[in-house]
Write a protein that binds this DNA or RNA. Sequence first.
DNA 1: GAGCACTGC
Length: 760
Amino acid sequence: MGTERKRKVSLFDVVDETSISLAKMSKSNGGGGAAANQNAVSSMINRWTGKPYSQRYYEILEKRKTLPVWHQKEEFLQALKASQSLILVGETGSGKTTQIPQFVLEAVNSESSDKRKKMMVACTQPRRVAAMSVSHRVAEEMDVTIGEEVGYSIRFEDCSSSRTVLKYLTDGMLLREAMTDPLLERYSVIILDEAHERTLATDVLFGLLKEVLRNRPDLKVVVMSATLEAEKFQGYFSGAPLMKVPGRLHPVEIFYTEEPERDYLEAAIRTVVQIHMYETPGDILVFLTGEEEIEDACRKINKEIGNLGDQVGPVKVVPLYSTLPPAMQQKIFDPAPPPVKEGGIPGRKIVVSTNIAETSLTIDGIVYVIDPGFAKQIVYNPRVRVESLLVSPISKASAHQRSGRAGRTQPGKCFRLYTEKSFQNDLQPQTYPEILRSNLANTVLTLKKLGIDDLVHFDFMDPPAPETLMRALEVLNYLGALDDDGNLTKLGEIMSEFPLDPQMSKMLVVSPEFSCSNEILSISAMLSDFLLCKHCPNCYICMQMLMHVVEVVMCQIRLSSATVLSREAQKAADEAKARFGHIDGDHLTLLNVYHAYKQNNEDPSWCYENFVNQRALKSADNVRQQLVRIMGRFNLKLCSTEFNSRDYYINIRKAMLAGYFMQVAHLERTGHYLTVKDNQVVHLHPSNCLDHKPEWVIYNEYVLTSRNFIRTVMDIRGEWLIDIAPHYYDLANFPQCEAKRVLEKLYRKREDKDENKNRR
DNA sequence: GAGCACTGC
């Protein structure tokens, strides 16, 4: 009662203030009717803050009114009112991401103003940066402070409060929330944005929300997508109404090649040169598949255009891929170079990029796009439990997205380096959703935690291969996360709370039993650090070195980058290896680097001098803190073995094995390694820090490149296998191989030992 | 003695 009164008073106060300013205004405007004044007054009050709108608000409002989606506001609100779920298709530039959630907000509150229940509107995004930047923009549009009425929530950062009514969050974050709030009861409307990207988290949310909708008639779901896969979404959400919003892109003219290209890299470079020679000014964006290819292409483009001399304008060739340090990534936003002489031929910026420029990063000013039609994609083979990256043809949807990048600021052109026939007949309409291409062990664990017991009948939009689900269930059962009936165990429940792969969360949860949870925490953080090359210990070092060299030899780089960089980087990597390397394994090397970093008080200049990547370490430390908090929630002890004890490293290696006993390789007498049980021939990746070839190793990752490599490896002992994972190393259920014979011997030895013990 | 598309919790 009291607060209600207070609220009214303050509102009244504000109204009073504005009517004064309004009175002044109407005076200068020559006045207006009292009723009109009253209306104008209420529309000048921000209903969220109770304060009058700022000048900036009105300025932005004018721009908002020109967005295509604004014209369909009423249509949208009616559709939303009429049904529980709704599909909205809008191309880039329609304004859907910023405006639709605001429309929803208006509708929701006007409908349930009496209930006064604290209900939020959620809008998911596949990427953190998007969640963050869009929420800032919308807070500005609504004339409120970010983190108050409008907020965002991403890993490591919750910028929302009890006042928040609109929250942007990553799809993975909403999935996490669902684990503790299965009916998502704090939300009245959930908007899944960028649904066409079909991330793993969005796909799981689809299935989950479909169930929640049945249990919560008051909940509404809006699915927003950029492509015409909308009919599929519509069918999935049992005929939800479909609304289309036009985009606001400039026209892009598409060109195909007459004949298929034999060498797309060569063709791409040739096309760049031709555009530069014959087309009107405007920057070029070239899509290639990976770092090495991109660096190679940049060198060749510079060389070929250099050969043309001053008959053409100057160029600035910029590579772009995710592992490039941010400072280098920034270069894509630099302007094109000016003409060499005043009034000369204008310069051109040429960005050579991976898929990152297709979705994650937008570069304005691009007028020409070159699309060879390939991208590296991950594929999962459940038979051998291996994920690998393969260069494969893109989808029509992807090609469409790429060409759209040419029309952001003016009409553009897109050169597809394949035939039109090939586009029509060979490219599949959509990129295979991630859920069909991934190892699902972690996803299955999440689903179990969400209370989905029957995975086979769970309503996936695209059901994964049964074999993939079986593999995931099998792995989780071996780890002890699921019992033999497929039910979540207590251990599994704890494991599901960690934002890590099941193997890693398993080793973390059991690490106190091996008296080394502090060390396993550090190793886990270093391994799961996603900001930089997480895999090779060298990369914690070489990146910093690269940047150092870049500064020192600034202008020479363009001429002889390959030789200078790799020699220096190699030297740095070798030095670092000598300093931090641990002969028993790469995981222990990572631990050494982390310890050294902490012992030197995270000092940036120490990092610099030791070629250690501070950014990577800082991020690992952040992950570690999050993991420590989760350990605390479950009363998992933080402990270490005495550093000088003989068992210090042994305990760590045993704890690691408790999680990774399914990723073991055995050294055969022939001199090569075979993975245990799957019997695949593998090779130690040359980046390893071992000084010997151990008989048994565990590995973090299996990569298929020029050969089958196992990367990030550690020496373990055969006896530990039968001690720590006897259920997996049960020989009755083991393929015939050399490893089996060795294990048989180990079992016999242990039996003899036990007998001796009993006799005594 | 090789060479890692892109996200996310």
